[in-house]
Amino acid sequence: MSAVAEEGSARAPWALTAPALMLFVGVLLIPLAMTVMLSFHDWGQYKGIEPVFILKNWHEIATDPYYAEMFWRTFRIAILTTLLTALLGAPEAYILNRMDGRWKSFFLLVILGPLLISVVARTLGWALLFGGNNGLVNKLLMSLGVMRSPIPFMFTETGMVVALAHVMMPFMVLSVWAALQRLDPQIENAAMSLGAGPGTTIRRIIMPQIMPGVLSGAIIVFSLSASAFATPAIIGGRRLKVAATLAYDEFLNTLNWPLGAAVATLLLVALVLIVVGSNALIERRYAEVFR
């Protein structure tokens, strides 16, 4: 009797998680495995995809400097975006946290509001403002005689970083905000009573404690930026490609699926390694703050 009950209760967790597990396997693991396998297949202009096992695609990525440059660009943009969101987002969260109740909720809404708008719409907004001779800001500045040619924004890395930082900002602010909520509400008074001025308090007391929040925000922003598609596609188009837009092009324009799969797989593996590695580093470095 009890043995049967025990057997039943041992099986129950599996039975209960089965639907979610099946979904996970069905829509994530299987396509992922297929993509990895696809990256080892052959492809030719006229023969299409051949299901064989060769290293041609990987060899091409490893040897052709075009791919190295493109991956380097992807990560450079992601790193700069991360830095920009951290530099602006951490102070933003701090200031927000110090506001009184009503203003606080209003500005929190202002910051989170953009999450409700499609990334495409938000990026197109930048294009409308800065896109070539017809961009609103460019037109205004040129008609005022401030500058002769449009601000170089479209098809530039700067433009991409700015637009991405705009899109990613809520994630950084939220993450730092969460870290700020864990601070002792009297901690600044404590520092002040010991003789610390506002600058010293922020540098020596607040910053070290919200650093884990900044870093976890940075991991989110970095991985989302490195794998972002919509923003680079609109700002960079086909002139300034990053890993995600390149994979897309290989799949849908060149129709070289195996090469696209190899690019996508490499991006995924690199991201996983970077995220897991930095997460482990952060947890070790900030063990005392997290406890």
Binding site: Q186, M192, G195, Q209, Y286
Partner: peptide, 19 residues
């Protein structure tokens, strides 16, 4: 200014610097 008063304060939550 409170930073210059030179008073010692112990808070109910202690407000120690955890890092």
């Amino acid at each position: 200014h409170p930073a210059k008063r030179g008073l010692g304060i112990v808070f109910q939550s202690y407000a120690l610097f955890p890092h």
